[in-house]
Design a protein around this nucleic acid. Sequence first.
DNA 1: ATAACAGTGTTATAATAATAACATCAAATT
DNA 2: AATTTGATGTTATTATTATAACACTGTTAT
Lengths: 218, 218
Amino acid sequence: MVKIFDRERIFRLLTYKGILLKFKSLGFIRVFSDNIAEALDISSSLVRKDFGIFGISGSQKGGYHIDRILEKINEILGTGDLQKVIIIGVGRIGEALIRYKGFENDGIKIVAGFETDHRKINPQAEIPIYPVEELRDYVRKNSIKIAIMAVPEMVSQHTYELLREAGIKGILNFTPTSIKSSEGIVVNHVNIEHELANLIYFVNLENRKDEDTISNNQ
Amino acid sequence: MVKIFDRERIFRLLTYKGILLKFKSLGFIRVFSDNIAEALDISSSLVRKDFGIFGISGSQKGGYHIDRILEKINEILGTGDLQKVIIIGVGRIGEALIRYKGFENDGIKIVAGFETDHRKINPQAEIPIYPVEELRDYVRKNSIKIAIMAVPEMVSQHTYELLREAGIKGILNFTPTSIKSSEGIVVNHVNIEHELANLIYFVNLENRKDEDTISNNQ
DNA sequence: ATAACAGTGTTATAATAATAACATCAAATT
DNA sequence: AATTTGATGTTATTATTATAACACTGTTAT
Protein backbone atom coordinates (compact mmCIF):
# COMPACT_ATOMS: atom_id res chain seq x y z
CA MET A 1 0.00 0.00 0.00
CA VAL A 2 1.68 3.15 -1.22
CA LYS A 3 0.60 6.65 -0.39
CA ILE A 4 0.66 9.37 -3.01
CA PHE A 5 1.43 12.89 -1.97
CA ASP A 6 0.90 15.92 -4.13
CA ARG A 7 3.60 17.96 -5.75
CA GLU A 8 3.44 20.83 -3.30
CA ARG A 9 3.81 18.61 -0.30
CA ILE A 10 6.77 16.79 -1.78
CA PHE A 11 8.42 20.11 -2.53
CA ARG A 12 7.84 21.16 1.04
CA LEU A 13 9.37 17.89 2.17
CA LEU A 14 12.50 18.73 0.21
CA THR A 15 12.56 22.16 1.77
CA TYR A 16 12.24 20.63 5.22
CA LYS A 17 15.18 18.44 4.40
CA GLY A 18 17.29 21.43 3.46
CA ILE A 19 16.50 23.45 6.51
CA LEU A 20 16.93 20.46 8.81
CA LEU A 21 20.39 19.80 7.41
CA LYS A 22 21.20 23.40 8.15
CA PHE A 23 19.91 23.11 11.72
CA LYS A 24 21.94 19.94 12.09
CA SER A 25 25.11 21.58 10.84
CA LEU A 26 24.58 24.23 13.50
CA GLY A 27 24.71 21.53 16.14
CA PHE A 28 21.03 21.05 16.83
CA ILE A 29 19.73 17.57 17.62
CA ARG A 30 16.04 18.41 17.88
CA VAL A 31 13.69 20.99 16.45
CA PHE A 32 10.24 22.31 17.19
CA SER A 33 7.63 22.81 14.51
CA ASP A 34 7.88 26.51 15.31
CA ASN A 35 11.56 26.66 14.34
CA ILE A 36 10.90 25.15 10.96
CA ALA A 37 7.81 27.25 10.39
CA GLU A 38 9.60 30.46 11.14
CA ALA A 39 12.57 29.60 8.96
CA LEU A 40 10.31 28.81 6.03
CA ASP A 41 7.67 31.44 6.67
CA ILE A 42 4.75 29.03 6.95
CA SER A 43 2.49 28.14 9.86
CA SER A 44 3.58 25.61 12.44
CA SER A 45 0.29 23.78 12.03
CA LEU A 46 1.23 23.02 8.49
CA VAL A 47 4.57 21.61 9.54
CA ARG A 48 2.95 19.39 12.13
CA LYS A 49 0.24 18.35 9.71
CA ASP A 50 2.78 17.44 7.05
CA PHE A 51 4.76 15.46 9.57
CA GLY A 52 1.61 13.72 10.69
CA ILE A 53 0.73 12.76 7.14
CA PHE A 54 4.26 11.56 6.45
CA GLY A 55 4.23 9.49 9.63
CA ILE A 56 6.86 11.55 11.40
CA SER A 57 6.21 11.80 15.11
CA GLY A 58 7.83 13.84 17.82
CA SER A 59 7.73 13.81 21.56
CA GLN A 60 5.28 15.83 23.52
CA LYS A 61 7.68 18.34 24.86
CA GLY A 62 10.99 17.72 23.21
CA GLY A 63 9.99 18.37 19.62
CA TYR A 64 11.31 16.23 16.78
CA HIS A 65 14.61 14.42 16.42
CA ILE A 66 16.27 15.84 13.33
CA ASP A 67 17.91 12.56 12.37
CA ARG A 68 14.65 10.72 12.66
CA ILE A 69 12.86 13.17 10.37
CA LEU A 70 15.69 12.97 7.84
CA GLU A 71 15.56 9.18 7.82
CA LYS A 72 11.85 9.22 7.26
CA ILE A 73 12.11 11.80 4.50
CA ASN A 74 14.71 9.76 2.66
CA GLU A 75 12.50 6.73 3.02
CA ILE A 76 9.53 8.54 1.48
CA LEU A 77 11.57 10.02 -1.35
CA GLY A 78 13.09 6.65 -2.10
CA THR A 79 16.52 8.11 -1.68
CA GLY A 80 18.93 5.35 -0.85
CA ASP A 81 19.84 3.70 -4.09
CA LEU A 82 21.61 6.23 -6.26
CA GLN A 83 19.52 7.72 -9.04
CA LYS A 84 21.22 7.76 -12.40
CA VAL A 85 20.26 10.70 -14.60
CA ILE A 86 21.23 11.49 -18.19
CA ILE A 87 21.28 14.82 -19.97
CA ILE A 88 20.19 15.21 -23.53
CA GLY A 89 21.57 18.34 -25.16
CA VAL A 90 25.01 19.43 -24.05
CA GLY A 91 24.83 23.13 -24.86
CA ARG A 92 25.52 25.82 -22.31
CA ILE A 93 22.87 24.73 -19.88
CA GLY A 94 23.46 21.02 -20.32
CA GLU A 95 27.16 21.61 -19.83
CA ALA A 96 26.55 23.62 -16.67
CA LEU A 97 24.32 20.92 -15.25
CA ILE A 98 26.81 18.17 -16.07
CA ARG A 99 29.51 19.96 -14.14
CA TYR A 100 27.22 20.94 -11.32
CA LYS A 101 28.17 19.38 -8.00
CA GLY A 102 25.58 19.23 -5.32
CA PHE A 103 23.25 16.61 -6.68
CA GLU A 104 25.17 13.97 -4.79
CA ASN A 105 23.64 15.09 -1.50
CA ASP A 106 20.30 14.02 -2.82
CA GLY A 107 21.52 10.69 -4.14
CA ILE A 108 21.42 11.92 -7.72
CA LYS A 109 24.22 11.36 -10.20
CA ILE A 110 24.47 12.55 -13.76
CA VAL A 111 26.03 9.65 -15.60
CA ALA A 112 26.10 10.68 -19.27
CA GLY A 113 25.26 13.30 -21.86
CA PHE A 114 23.91 12.90 -25.38
CA GLU A 115 24.45 15.24 -28.33
CA THR A 116 23.88 15.57 -32.05
CA ASP A 117 26.83 17.91 -32.57
CA HIS A 118 29.66 15.46 -33.19
CA ARG A 119 32.31 17.90 -32.04
CA LYS A 120 31.02 17.57 -28.53
CA ILE A 121 31.07 13.79 -28.41
CA ASN A 122 33.58 12.49 -25.90
CA PRO A 123 33.00 8.99 -24.56
CA GLN A 124 36.25 9.11 -22.57
CA ALA A 125 35.32 12.08 -20.41
CA GLU A 126 34.62 11.63 -16.73
CA ILE A 127 30.99 12.09 -17.58
CA PRO A 128 30.93 10.72 -21.14
CA ILE A 129 29.12 12.45 -24.00
CA TYR A 130 27.65 10.06 -26.57
CA PRO A 131 25.90 10.63 -29.90
CA VAL A 132 22.10 10.53 -29.60
CA GLU A 133 22.06 7.43 -31.76
CA GLU A 134 23.28 5.50 -28.75
CA LEU A 135 20.60 6.86 -26.44
CA ARG A 136 18.25 3.92 -26.71
CA ASP A 137 20.87 1.29 -26.02
CA TYR A 138 22.41 3.19 -23.16
CA VAL A 139 19.09 3.73 -21.45
CA ARG A 140 18.20 0.06 -21.69
CA LYS A 141 21.58 -1.31 -20.66
CA ASN A 142 21.84 0.98 -17.66
CA SER A 143 18.14 1.05 -16.86
CA ILE A 144 17.99 4.84 -16.81
CA LYS A 145 14.65 6.32 -15.87
CA ILE A 146 15.31 10.04 -15.62
CA ALA A 147 16.50 12.50 -18.27
CA ILE A 148 17.17 16.21 -18.28
CA MET A 149 16.19 17.82 -21.55
CA ALA A 150 18.35 20.81 -22.43
CA VAL A 151 18.05 20.97 -26.20
CA PRO A 152 17.12 23.95 -28.40
CA GLU A 153 13.42 24.76 -28.45
CA MET A 154 13.15 23.79 -32.11
CA VAL A 155 13.79 20.12 -31.49
CA SER A 156 12.09 19.72 -28.14
CA GLN A 157 9.07 17.79 -29.37
CA HIS A 158 11.25 15.46 -31.42
CA THR A 159 13.59 14.95 -28.49
CA TYR A 160 10.65 14.07 -26.33
CA GLU A 161 9.74 11.32 -28.78
CA LEU A 162 13.31 10.01 -28.71
CA LEU A 163 13.28 9.84 -24.94
CA ARG A 164 9.90 8.18 -24.87
CA GLU A 165 10.98 5.54 -27.34
CA ALA A 166 14.16 4.93 -25.40
CA GLY A 167 12.06 4.08 -22.37
CA ILE A 168 12.65 7.14 -20.20
CA LYS A 169 10.05 7.54 -17.46
CA GLY A 170 10.69 11.05 -16.17
CA ILE A 171 11.86 14.22 -17.91
CA LEU A 172 13.03 17.51 -16.48
CA ASN A 173 12.36 19.90 -19.33
CA PHE A 174 14.51 23.03 -19.58
CA THR A 175 12.91 23.91 -22.90
CA PRO A 176 10.30 26.69 -23.08
CA THR A 177 7.99 24.30 -24.91
CA SER A 178 5.29 22.79 -22.74
CA ILE A 179 5.28 19.08 -23.44
CA LYS A 180 2.09 17.14 -22.94
CA SER A 181 3.13 14.24 -20.76
CA SER A 182 1.46 11.00 -21.59
CA GLU A 183 1.56 7.25 -21.17
CA GLY A 184 3.04 7.13 -17.74
CA ILE A 185 5.83 9.59 -18.44
CA VAL A 186 6.22 12.39 -15.93
CA VAL A 187 7.40 15.73 -17.29
CA ASN A 188 8.41 18.63 -15.04
CA HIS A 189 9.26 22.03 -16.45
CA VAL A 190 11.91 24.53 -15.48
CA ASN A 191 11.19 27.74 -17.33
CA ILE A 192 13.66 30.43 -16.49
CA GLU A 193 12.01 33.05 -18.69
CA HIS A 194 8.78 32.55 -16.83
CA GLU A 195 10.49 32.73 -13.49
CA LEU A 196 12.13 35.99 -14.49
CA ALA A 197 9.01 37.48 -16.02
CA ASN A 198 7.05 36.54 -12.94
CA LEU A 199 9.63 38.17 -10.71
CA ILE A 200 9.58 41.32 -12.81
CA TYR A 201 5.82 41.48 -12.55
CA PHE A 202 5.88 41.39 -8.78
CA VAL A 203 8.70 43.89 -8.53
CA ASN A 204 6.92 46.34 -10.80
CA LEU A 205 3.87 45.84 -8.67
CA GLU A 206 5.69 47.18 -5.65
CA ASN A 207 6.40 50.36 -7.58
CA ARG A 208 2.84 50.77 -8.69
CA LYS A 209 1.72 50.42 -5.10
CA ASP A 210 2.19 54.17 -4.73
CA GLU A 211 -1.13 54.37 -6.45
CA ASP A 212 -3.97 52.82 -4.50
CA THR A 213 -4.00 49.10 -4.74
CA ILE A 214 -6.67 46.50 -4.83
CA SER A 215 -6.04 42.84 -4.22
CA ASN A 216 -7.82 40.45 -6.48
CA ASN A 217 -7.87 36.75 -5.84
CA GLN A 218 -11.44 35.77 -6.48
CA MET B 1 -5.97 51.40 -9.13
CA VAL B 2 -3.76 48.36 -9.69
CA LYS B 3 -4.91 44.79 -9.44
CA ILE B 4 -2.72 42.15 -7.87
CA PHE B 5 -2.81 38.66 -9.23
CA ASP B 6 -1.34 35.66 -7.51
CA ARG B 7 1.76 33.83 -8.59
CA GLU B 8 -0.04 30.87 -10.11
CA ARG B 9 -2.23 33.02 -12.27
CA ILE B 10 0.71 35.04 -13.54
CA PHE B 11 2.52 31.85 -14.40
CA ARG B 12 -0.53 30.68 -16.27
CA LEU B 13 -0.60 33.99 -18.09
CA LEU B 14 2.96 33.40 -19.23
CA THR B 15 2.00 29.94 -20.39
CA TYR B 16 -0.92 31.36 -22.31
CA LYS B 17 1.46 33.74 -23.97
CA GLY B 18 3.70 30.91 -25.06
CA ILE B 19 0.97 28.75 -26.47
CA LEU B 20 -0.66 31.72 -28.21
CA LEU B 21 2.58 32.62 -29.93
CA LYS B 22 2.75 29.04 -31.13
CA PHE B 23 -0.82 29.18 -32.45
CA LYS B 24 0.00 32.44 -34.14
CA SER B 25 3.08 31.02 -35.80
CA LEU B 26 0.87 28.28 -37.18
CA GLY B 27 -1.22 30.92 -38.91
CA PHE B 28 -4.14 31.17 -36.53
CA ILE B 29 -5.78 34.54 -35.95
CA ARG B 30 -8.28 33.48 -33.32
CA VAL B 31 -8.55 30.80 -30.65
CA PHE B 32 -11.28 29.26 -28.55
CA SER B 33 -10.89 28.67 -24.85
CA ASP B 34 -11.11 24.99 -25.66
CA ASN B 35 -8.00 25.07 -27.85
CA ILE B 36 -5.93 26.62 -25.12
CA ALA B 37 -7.37 24.37 -22.46
CA GLU B 38 -6.59 21.23 -24.40
CA ALA B 39 -3.07 22.32 -25.24
CA LEU B 40 -2.32 23.04 -21.60
CA ASP B 41 -4.35 20.26 -20.07
CA ILE B 42 -6.59 22.47 -17.96
CA SER B 43 -10.33 23.17 -18.10
CA SER B 44 -11.73 25.69 -20.52
CA SER B 45 -13.64 27.33 -17.67
CA LEU B 46 -10.36 28.23 -16.10
CA VAL B 47 -9.11 29.82 -19.29
CA ARG B 48 -12.26 31.87 -19.65
CA LYS B 49 -12.20 32.80 -15.99
CA ASP B 50 -8.59 33.93 -16.19
CA PHE B 51 -9.37 35.97 -19.26
CA GLY B 52 -12.33 37.50 -17.52
CA ILE B 53 -10.23 38.48 -14.54
CA PHE B 54 -7.51 39.90 -16.77
CA GLY B 55 -10.07 41.87 -18.72
CA ILE B 56 -9.63 39.93 -21.92
CA SER B 57 -12.87 39.54 -23.81
CA GLY B 58 -13.79 37.52 -26.85
CA SER B 59 -16.71 37.46 -29.17
CA GLN B 60 -19.70 35.23 -28.67
CA LYS B 61 -19.00 32.91 -31.46
CA GLY B 62 -15.62 33.77 -32.88
CA GLY B 63 -13.49 33.11 -29.80
CA TYR B 64 -10.61 35.40 -28.92
CA HIS B 65 -8.31 37.41 -31.15
CA ILE B 66 -4.81 36.17 -30.47
CA ASP B 67 -3.21 39.56 -31.01
CA ARG B 68 -5.63 41.20 -28.66
CA ILE B 69 -4.88 38.70 -25.89
CA LEU B 70 -1.16 39.12 -26.41
CA GLU B 71 -1.44 42.90 -26.20
CA LYS B 72 -3.39 42.66 -23.00
CA ILE B 73 -0.96 40.16 -21.50
CA ASN B 74 2.00 42.41 -22.26
CA GLU B 75 0.14 45.28 -20.71
CA ILE B 76 -0.49 43.35 -17.51
CA LEU B 77 3.07 42.07 -17.29
CA GLY B 78 4.41 45.54 -17.89
CA THR B 79 6.40 44.25 -20.82
CA GLY B 80 7.19 47.06 -23.15
CA ASP B 81 10.16 48.87 -21.74
CA LEU B 82 13.11 46.50 -21.74
CA GLN B 83 13.96 44.98 -18.37
CA LYS B 84 17.63 45.11 -17.51
CA VAL B 85 18.86 42.19 -15.42
CA ILE B 86 22.27 41.54 -13.88
CA ILE B 87 23.83 38.25 -12.84
CA ILE B 88 25.87 37.90 -9.71
CA GLY B 89 28.17 34.90 -9.81
CA VAL B 90 29.60 33.95 -13.19
CA GLY B 91 30.28 30.27 -12.62
CA ARG B 92 28.92 27.54 -14.85
CA ILE B 93 25.32 28.45 -14.36
CA GLY B 94 25.82 32.19 -14.44
CA GLU B 95 27.86 31.78 -17.60
CA ALA B 96 25.17 29.67 -19.23
CA LEU B 97 22.50 32.22 -18.38
CA ILE B 98 24.58 35.12 -19.67
CA ARG B 99 24.93 33.42 -23.04
CA TYR B 100 21.35 32.25 -23.12
CA LYS B 101 19.36 33.80 -25.96
CA GLY B 102 15.62 33.72 -25.70
CA PHE B 103 15.04 36.26 -22.97
CA GLU B 104 14.67 38.96 -25.58
CA ASN B 105 11.24 37.68 -26.57
CA ASP B 106 10.07 38.60 -23.12
CA GLY B 107 11.66 42.03 -23.14
CA ILE B 108 14.40 40.88 -20.77
CA LYS B 109 18.07 41.63 -21.30
CA ILE B 110 21.03 40.54 -19.23
CA VAL B 111 23.28 43.57 -19.16
CA ALA B 112 26.17 42.65 -16.88
CA GLY B 113 27.74 40.05 -14.64
CA PHE B 114 29.56 40.45 -11.32
CA GLU B 115 32.27 38.21 -9.90
CA THR B 116 34.78 37.94 -7.07
CA ASP B 117 37.19 35.77 -9.05
CA HIS B 118 39.34 38.38 -10.76
CA ARG B 119 40.32 36.05 -13.59
CA LYS B 120 36.76 36.23 -14.84
CA ILE B 121 36.51 40.02 -14.86
CA ASN B 122 36.15 41.39 -18.37
CA PRO B 123 34.56 44.83 -18.70
CA GLN B 124 35.12 44.83 -22.47
CA ALA B 125 33.04 41.77 -23.22
CA GLU B 126 29.75 42.07 -25.05
CA ILE B 127 28.10 41.44 -21.73
CA PRO B 128 30.70 42.89 -19.36
CA ILE B 129 31.82 41.15 -16.17
CA TYR B 130 32.71 43.51 -13.34
CA PRO B 131 34.15 42.93 -9.89
CA VAL B 132 31.49 42.81 -7.17
CA GLU B 133 32.93 45.96 -5.65
CA GLU B 134 31.32 47.88 -8.49
CA LEU B 135 27.91 46.33 -7.96
CA ARG B 136 26.44 49.13 -5.91
CA ASP B 137 27.47 51.91 -8.28
CA TYR B 138 26.37 50.01 -11.36
CA VAL B 139 22.95 49.24 -9.94
CA ARG B 140 22.37 52.87 -9.01
CA LYS B 141 23.70 54.38 -12.21
CA ASN B 142 21.70 52.04 -14.42
CA SER B 143 18.70 51.75 -12.10
CA ILE B 144 18.77 47.96 -12.13
CA LYS B 145 15.99 46.30 -10.21
CA ILE B 146 16.41 42.60 -10.97
CA ALA B 147 19.34 40.29 -10.23
CA ILE B 148 19.97 36.62 -10.82
CA MET B 149 21.91 35.03 -8.01
CA ALA B 150 24.14 32.18 -9.18
CA VAL B 151 26.84 32.09 -6.51
CA PRO B 152 28.08 29.12 -4.46
CA GLU B 153 25.78 28.12 -1.62
CA MET B 154 28.36 29.16 0.97
CA VAL B 155 28.10 32.85 0.17
CA SER B 156 24.41 33.08 -0.69
CA GLN B 157 23.32 34.87 2.46
CA HIS B 158 26.15 37.36 2.18
CA THR B 159 25.40 37.92 -1.49
CA TYR B 160 21.80 38.61 -0.62
CA GLU B 161 22.95 41.36 1.73
CA LEU B 162 25.10 42.85 -1.01
CA LEU B 163 22.19 42.93 -3.41
CA ARG B 164 19.89 44.39 -0.83
CA GLU B 165 22.33 47.14 0.01
CA ALA B 166 22.87 47.87 -3.67
CA GLY B 167 19.16 48.55 -3.98
CA ILE B 168 18.06 45.46 -5.92
CA LYS B 169 14.30 44.86 -5.70
CA GLY B 170 13.92 41.36 -7.12
CA ILE B 171 16.16 38.30 -6.97
CA LEU B 172 15.99 35.05 -8.85
CA ASN B 173 17.85 32.70 -6.58
CA PHE B 174 19.60 29.69 -8.12
CA THR B 175 21.16 28.81 -4.80
CA PRO B 176 19.79 25.90 -2.77
CA THR B 177 19.56 28.22 0.23
CA SER B 178 16.09 29.52 0.94
CA ILE B 179 16.40 33.24 1.51
CA LYS B 180 13.85 34.98 3.65
CA SER B 181 12.72 37.89 1.52
CA SER B 182 12.12 41.07 3.44
CA GLU B 183 11.64 44.80 3.20
CA GLY B 184 9.98 44.90 -0.16
CA ILE B 185 12.45 42.62 -1.89
CA VAL B 186 10.93 39.78 -3.89
CA VAL B 187 12.90 36.55 -4.00
CA ASN B 188 11.98 33.65 -6.29
CA HIS B 189 13.77 30.34 -6.12
CA VAL B 190 14.88 27.96 -8.82
CA ASN B 191 15.98 24.77 -7.17
CA ILE B 192 17.09 22.18 -9.67
CA GLU B 193 17.86 19.55 -7.06
CA HIS B 194 14.34 19.82 -5.76
CA GLU B 195 12.88 19.64 -9.24
CA LEU B 196 14.88 16.51 -9.92
CA ALA B 197 14.14 14.88 -6.59
CA ASN B 198 10.47 15.63 -7.06
CA LEU B 199 10.51 14.09 -10.50
CA ILE B 200 12.25 11.00 -9.19
CA TYR B 201 9.67 10.62 -6.48
CA PHE B 202 6.80 10.62 -8.95
CA VAL B 203 8.57 8.27 -11.34
CA ASN B 204 9.30 5.79 -8.58
CA LEU B 205 5.69 6.05 -7.59
CA GLU B 206 4.63 4.73 -10.98
CA ASN B 207 6.73 1.66 -10.36
CA ARG B 208 5.32 1.07 -6.93
CA LYS B 209 1.85 1.26 -8.38
CA ASP B 210 2.07 -2.46 -9.08
CA GLU B 211 1.23 -2.82 -5.45
CA ASP B 212 -2.17 -1.49 -4.54
CA THR B 213 -2.18 2.22 -4.24
CA ILE B 214 -3.98 4.68 -2.06
CA SER B 215 -4.21 8.34 -2.84
CA ASN B 216 -3.78 10.67 0.05
CA ASN B 217 -4.55 14.34 -0.21
CA GLN B 218 -6.44 15.08 2.93
C1' DA C 1 -37.37 35.62 -40.38
C1' DT C 2 -36.71 31.98 -37.52
C1' DA C 3 -34.40 28.23 -35.51
C1' DA C 4 -30.40 25.89 -34.24
C1' DC C 5 -25.87 26.33 -32.98
C1' DA C 6 -21.61 27.19 -30.66
C1' DG C 7 -19.20 29.77 -28.28
C1' DT C 8 -18.49 33.28 -24.20
C1' DG C 9 -19.17 35.07 -19.48
C1' DT C 10 -20.69 34.11 -14.97
C1' DT C 11 -22.59 31.77 -11.15
C1' DA C 12 -22.87 27.58 -8.32
C1' DT C 13 -20.52 23.74 -6.68
C1' DA C 14 -16.95 20.86 -5.32
C1' DA C 15 -12.25 19.96 -4.14
C1' DT C 16 -8.21 21.33 -2.03
C1' DA C 17 -5.15 23.53 1.13
C1' DA C 18 -3.79 26.27 4.90
C1' DT C 19 -4.66 28.18 9.23
C1' DA C 20 -6.44 28.56 13.71
C1' DA C 21 -7.94 26.37 17.82
C1' DC C 22 -7.67 23.22 21.22
C1' DA C 23 -7.52 18.85 23.68
C1' DT C 24 -3.84 15.98 25.28
C1' DC C 25 -0.03 14.52 27.57
C1' DA C 26 5.08 14.20 28.91
C1' DA C 27 8.32 16.83 31.27
C1' DA C 28 9.73 20.30 34.48
C1' DT C 29 8.89 22.83 38.62
C1' DT C 30 7.47 23.72 43.13
C1' DA D 1 2.69 14.66 44.70
C1' DA D 2 0.43 18.22 42.63
C1' DT D 3 0.67 21.84 39.40
C1' DT D 4 2.16 24.29 35.72
C1' DT D 5 4.07 24.42 31.34
C1' DG D 6 4.79 23.90 26.49
C1' DA D 7 4.84 21.38 22.72
C1' DT D 8 2.53 17.78 19.82
C1' DG D 9 -1.37 15.75 17.19
C1' DT D 10 -5.84 16.45 15.51
C1' DT D 11 -10.17 18.56 14.57
C1' DA D 12 -12.82 22.62 13.03
C1' DT D 13 -12.84 26.54 10.31
C1' DT D 14 -11.72 29.43 6.77
C1' DA D 15 -9.72 30.63 2.42
C1' DT D 16 -8.56 29.47 -2.00
C1' DT D 17 -8.74 27.26 -6.42
C1' DA D 18 -10.57 24.72 -10.05
C1' DT D 19 -14.36 22.63 -12.23
C1' DA D 20 -18.91 22.04 -13.78
C1' DA D 21 -23.12 23.97 -15.25
C1' DC D 22 -25.74 27.00 -17.61
C1' DA D 23 -27.81 31.35 -19.05
C1' DC D 24 -26.94 34.43 -22.69
C1' DT D 25 -26.10 36.11 -27.27
C1' DG D 26 -23.99 36.83 -31.82
C1' DT D 27 -23.67 34.02 -35.99
C1' DT D 28 -24.90 30.82 -39.37
C1' DA D 29 -28.11 27.98 -41.81
C1' DT D 30 -32.47 27.08 -43.51
